[in-house]
Structure formats: C-alpha cells, structure tokens
C-alpha cells in the first residue's frame, strides 16, 4: 500500500502519457492531467504556506532569535490573504477579478512585491561584479576563452562596442564588436547550447524511464513498508 500503489500510479500515468503521443484518441490526456497538476499544486502550495506559518509562529511563541522578523512575515502573509480573499478595494462586486486595476491586492503587488523583487535581483548586480572580478582573471586557456566571450558580448550589446570599433571598414565589418557578438551568439554559442540541450534531454529521458519503471524511488522517502 505504502510503496506499491505509488509505484503503480507512477508507472500507469507515465506510460499513459507516453502512449498518448502515438494514440490520437487519447492525445489530449496530457492537457487534462495538466489541469489536475495545477489543482494539486494549489493544495501543495497550501501545505507550504501552512508550514511557513507553523515555523514562524513557533519562533514567535518561543521568542527565538529574530522572532520580530517572523512576526513581520506572518502579518504580511495574512494581510495579503485577507486583502485577496475579500477582494478589498476591488471595483465592482465579488465577481470582479482579484487583480483588477485599483484593488488593494494589485496595489500591494505594484508597490510592495514588485520593488522588493526587482531590487533583490538588482542587488545581484554588485555580487555579479565581484564574481566577474574572480572569473575574469585569465588563469588558464578555458578561463581566457570565457573572459573573451563574455567581454565581447558585454561590449557588443552596449553603444561602447560600436564607438570603439565603428571605424573598421565595411568589408571587415565582422570584426566590429556588435557584429562579432552576434556571430558568437549564432555560431559557437549555438553549438555549445545545442550540445548542452542534447545532453540534458538524454539525461531527462534516462531519468524519466528510471522513474516510470520504478528503478528510481527516492521521491517516496525512506519508509520501506510495502
């Protein structure tokens, strides 16, 4: 019950989806399962949200280190839930979309989540600069190739690239940095991308087969009772 049924479910569902590619009458089963998938994902997300609250409530109750920040997290979570569920500030009646223009839910997204998210990613610019310093030291042949490729792409995508190499005559225009950047993207970069994509896809096929055939069972956890 604990292991055999899940293994059977994985096998049947996986095989059904593979077979559906070759059998037109059931070819839409992938879309149907996709809807199942999104419904299950919501319940899984509820579990995750519940776990978040459990962990932070625990910290608040025990007054552990930094419990004040946990309080902020919990307040933020519930504020968003209440504003979203009751559609506070949304124009019209309850049937209006929760993300309608002017709703507090939408405003929270625009003025809280959006700036926080983009600033978090923008912050990475400074850490990327520090990483560049380490990566851009040409210690060996491979590091030098990486350095040159990244440098040409960076220069080629900015006006500086054209300013520096715009004087090169038209007959040698491939050596103008913007054109060189395009060539790198379309030839050697494409080749590397393809090799990686083919490698990944073969890995996905092998791993999928292992899962469907029940060879790979780690997702079931450590309990071995049948």
């Amino acid at each position: 019950m604990r292991r055999n049924i899940p293994l059977a479910v994985t096998f049947v569902v996986g095989m059904l989806l593979i077979v559906s590619v070759f059998l037109p009458p059931i070819e839409t089963i992938g879309e149907d399962f996709g809807v199942f998938f999104s419904i299950i994902a919501v319940f899984a997300f509820f579990l995750g949200g519940g776990n978040l609250i459990k962990v932070h409530f625990g910290k608040i109750m025990k007054k552990s280190n930094d419990w004040e920040f946990s309080l902020v997290t919990v307040v933020g979570f519930f504020a968003m839930l209440i504003i979203g569920l009751f559609k506070i500030g949304a124009p019209g009646d309850i049937s209006t979309s929760v993300t309608a223009e002017g709703s507090y839910f939408q405003e929270m997204f625009v003025y809280l989540i959006n700036p926080l998210q983009s600033t978090m990613y923008a912050l990475l610019a400074f850490f990327v600069a520090s990483a560049s310093y380490r990566a851009f030291r040409a210690k060996n042949r491979e590091a030098t190739i990486l350095l040159v490729a990244a440098f040409i792409i960076l220069l080629g995508r900015t006006p500086l690239g054209m300013m520096l190499t715009g004087w090169i005559p038209e007959s040698f225009s491939i050596f103008q940095v913007p054109n060189l950047a395009v060539w790198i993207m379309n030839s050697p970069n494409l080749a590397g991308q393809r090799a990686i994509m083919i490698g990944i896809s073969l890995g996905v096929v092998a791993m999928s087969l292992r899962l469907i055939l029940g060879i790979e069972r780690t997702y079931l956890g450590g309990d071995d009772k049948g």
């Binding site: 919501v42 902020v72 968003m80 809280l112």
Partner: peptide, 21 residues
C-alpha cells in the same frame, strides 16, 4: 526581507487559489 517572504507567499496563495481552484 521578511515583508517580501510573507507578502509574496500570500500573493501566490491567492493567485493560485483564484486561477486554479
């Protein structure tokens, strides 16, 4: 950071709820 975690979790819970459920 704490605001970001809490508000984002609430945002996605509501968005998933209305879009999927």
């Amino acid at each position: 950071e704490a605001i970001f975690v809490g508000v984002s979790a609430g945002f996605w819970a509501i968005t998933y709820f209305f879009d999927n459920i």
